[in-house]
Amino acid sequence: MTNKYSVEEIIKRSGANPLKCMKCGKCSATCPAYDEMEYHPHQFVSMIADGDIEALVKSDSIYRCLSCFACVERCPRGVEPAKLIEALKLEVIRKKGQNYLTPNDIPNMLNEDLPQQAIVSAFRKYTK
């Protein structure tokens, strides 16, 4: 499993710098999806900085981020945790057969009021 995922690539792609983190936990304090996550925003930052990403890529937590950018906005150090989570998730779904959402899943999710925007956004987030 070694080097299956490149941590340097993930950090470079994200445009964020996890070393700026001072471990205050404000990202996790502000995250609206905290309870849905096994690993929380501050853990993403810390584990990516340590290169310890095996557990993260296997966890559904990467799909729980709402991309609401509250953590990015409120981080006192400008770390931008959501960008790191995004970059990590791309690392996973770009691999063959790793799409989290497929067109076959959609019919069961539809209802009359659902805006197109929801489906487009979900595909953008979950699928390559």
């Binding site: 609206p32 999806a33 849905e36 799909y63 729980r64 709402l66 991309s67 609401c68 509250a70 959402l101 999710m109 659902l114 929801a118 489906i119 956004s121 979900a122 987030k125």
Partner: peptide, 19 residues
């Protein structure tokens, strides 16, 4: 200025509902 739950409603409507 907090999130409504966004696209997550597709997969987990209850979590969006909570937000």
């Amino acid at each position: 200025n907090e999130c409504c739950g966004g696209y997550v409603t597709l997969e987990s409507p209850n979590s969006a509902k909570k937000q």
